[in-house]
């Protein structure tokens, strides 16, 4: 990346300053300040009181924090493989020239991504409703017994999983499709002429070529599911759905229901670090490919 060296000009500062003022005031400073506040006991009104690492110690022994971690982990280990594999399978299907109306299908798979997650939540509340939901009707037809999926704390997490999958499948499919379109057809045809069977073709030719897309999908999906919030909030009409709490929801609950701002800042810091850990792989690759210079 070249560029002019005479950056000490009026024009340079006119171009750059507005963006960096906004970024500093509304993102960089608040992140650092959240970290700073996590060492204080503070209700948001009276003066903050320095408590050292107490918020973090309290956090790890806190029942609701453990529930949140448990839910985050469950969603992560179910959502990530599902959204990746389904996206991969669907993109291969949609890439196939023999499928009629591919563009319409591409449009359909993206619909969930265009909707606010609160509406996605409402849609799945309707489908999973114990009395009138289509999911229970299908289960009954298949000889199973209906359940109160969302109202029963032991199954409510599937509501979050299904909603997230339906909303995010469009993303993984689209990224894989873009990856597939970038692959030279001659490579695939050469593999077939060489006598590769479909599995070999997928495993030794397609998959290595799709690695960049795979990294994007895995990273962005990990971050997406770690940040899940809306599908839990949408259930909070009668009371906070604490059995479904996740880290992002816990920050909200501690700050807005219990006014423990210092403690909420500690949970927020933990969540931020977790998110960064999962984005390291992609950042590293970007540096290697010199895409950030």
């Amino acid at each position: 990346m070249g560029g002019r060296k005479d950056y000490l000009t009026k024009d340079f500062f006119i171009l750059m300053t507005p963006a960096f003022i906004l970024l500093f005031i509304f993102i960089v400073y608040p992140i650092l300040n959240t970290f700073y506040l996590s060492f204080f006991k503070w209700d948001g009104f009276t003066p903050p009181q320095f408590v050292g690492l107490q918020n973090y110690e309290k956090m790890f022994g806190y029942e609701l924090f453990r529930t949140s971690i448990k839910n985050n982990v469950f969603l992560f280990i179910t959502f990530l493989p599902l959204v990746t594999l389904l996206g991969l399978a669907f993109s291969i299907l949609l890439h196939n020239k023999e499928v009629v109306g591919r563009n319409v299908l591409r449009g359909i798979v993206m619909l969930g991504m265009v909707m606010p997650l609160t509406v996605v939540g409402i849609v799945w509340m309707l489908l999973l409703d114990p009395r009138s939901g289509i999911v229970n009707k299908i289960i009954e037809l298949l000889g199973g017994s209906p359940r109160a999926w969302i109202q029963d704390p032991s199954t409510a997490i599937y509501f979050v999983l299904l909603g997230s999958l339906w909303a995010w499948l469009g993303f993984s499919t689209t990224v894989f499709l873009a990856g597939l379109e970038g692959i030279d057809k001659e490579i695939l045809e050469a593999a077939i002429i060489d006598g590769a069977n479909p599995w070999q073709k997928f495993r030794y030719v397609l998959l290595p070529l799709l690695k960049p897309a795979l990294i994007v999908v895995v990273t962005m999906s990990s971050i997406y599911i770690l940040k899940v919030f809306d599908l839990i909030f949408v259930l909070s009409a009668e009371s906070p759905p604490l059995y479904l709490s996740v880290l992002a929801y816990l920050v909200y609950y501690e700050a807005f229901f219990r006014y423990r701002w210092g403690f909420a800042a500690a949970v927020a810091t933990f969540l931020t670090i977790a998110v960064f850990v999962f984005s390291i792989g992609m950042l590293k690759r970007m540096i290697q490919e010199r895409r950030v210079e």
């Binding site: 560029g3 060296k5 400073y29 959240t34 909200y252 927020a268 984005s279 210079e293």
Partner: peptide, 28 residues
């Protein structure tokens, strides 16, 4: 169009900031 000191660092920071959760900034 410009090249200036700490450009790569600044750009990398920008890319990293993309993933920040909204909860990380809400209290301040």
């Amino acid at each position: 169009s410009f090249s200036f000191p700490v450009k790569t660092m600044l750009f990398l920071t920008l890319v990293a900031i993309q993933v920040v959760p909204q909860q990380a900034v809400i209290i301040p």
